[in-house]
């Protein structure tokens, strides 16, 4: 009995040290490339040595940001990413919310099938859709080099529909029945009663929906050839794969562009990180 207790008090300390080491190494491994992105983007001449991982005041400059901005119009890229992301957000928040509400609170024929579809859609691999979507959207509908063509395949985020449904299911049905008796329309119910009660879900969904199109590369890359319409992820990728070799400090300029592309999402994520919770997103994926 005493021996057991002794080992029970000794080993938790070792375990806690071990745990701290695992967590610490993990945090460094995840954060270091971001630190290195910023350091590298500020170097006047690239310094890949170990010393280069520490800021050197004599080698710091903002020129790389100017250099990348001359090659790819950063502001235009950010605006294009913003329009693409904004379109997806509007589509998801309007139509996804309506669908989530209908799935949770209304009884109608086809509800089960619709929910099953929302789950199924998430496992449809994009590689199977790539060719037909390109044929349909770029060729048949003529939406290549068009914001609408960019937005269309992402217009309503299915994970968001499921998260909305999950939250609306938790609201007591009596609340709605009472208001219905008072003659409120379903839209009014959704807008005035349901929506204010699921505000945390709204933030989770905005965060989750935002990162998809903002970071998306393959689809906007396929559909936009006009540089003036390309989201920043696409124009930066084109810079990396083609013109990087011709710049005087290609690493500095590339990393500066990378920092500009990463910053909005990282800031948004840090500010709202407490809404990025396991249970919501877990349920969204699992259904």
């Amino acid at each position: 009995m005493t021996r057991k207790r002794m080992s029970a008090t000794r080993s938790p300390r070792i375990q806690s040290v071990l745990r701290s080491i695992v967590l610490g190494v993990g945090a460094i491994a995840f954060l270091f490339p971001f630190y290195y992105m910023i350091i590298g983007s500020l170097q006047a001449t690239p310094d890949p040595t170990v010393a280069g991982a520490f800021p050197n005041p004599s080698n710091l400059t903002l020129d790389n940001y100017v250099a990348i901005n001359e090659r790819i119009n950063l502001l235009q890229g950010l605006i294009n990413s913003g329009i693409f992301t904004g379109g997806v957000l509007v589509g998801t928040l309007v139509f996804g919310l309506l669908a989530g509400y209908a799935l949770a609170q209304l009884q109608w024929r086809g509800r089960g099938v619709t929910f099953a579809l929302a789950l199924l859609v998430q496992v449809v691999p994009f590689q199977l859709l790539m060719i037909p979507l390109y044929v349909l959207i770029a060729r048949d509908y003529g939406l290549a080099d068009n914001y609408l063509g960019m937005i269309l395949p992402f217009a309503i985020n299915s994970t968001a529909v499921i998260i909305f449904r999950q939250y609306f299911l938790q609201l007591p049905r009596e609340l709605f029945e009472a208001a219905r008796i008072d003659g409120a329309s379903e839209l009014a119910l959704l807008w005035r009663i349901a929506l204010p009660l699921v505000r945390p879900a709204l933030i989770t969904v905005v965060l989750l929906t935002f990162i998809g199109p903002w970071n998306e590369f393959l689809w906007p890359f396929l559909i936009t050839k006009d540089a003036a319409l390309q989201p920043l992820a696409v124009s930066l990728a084109n810079y990396i794969s083609t013109v990087a070799a011709s710049a005087s400090n290609p690493f500095g300029a590339t990393l500066a562009g990378a920092a500009v592309l990463a910053a909005p999402v990282v800031v948004l994520f840090i500010v709202f990180q407490r809404y990025f919770v396991s249970t919501d997103i877990g349920s969204g994926v699992k259904g």
Binding site: F30, A233, I240, T254, A259
Partner: peptide
């Protein structure tokens, strides 16, 4: 710190890995 790579664009972090 664990989630940051996941929320960041692949294109952005690819640049660091090349470096």
């Amino acid at each position: 710190s664990f989630y940051v790579p996941y929320v960041t664009a692949s294109v952005a972090v690819v640049a660091v890995w090349i470096f």
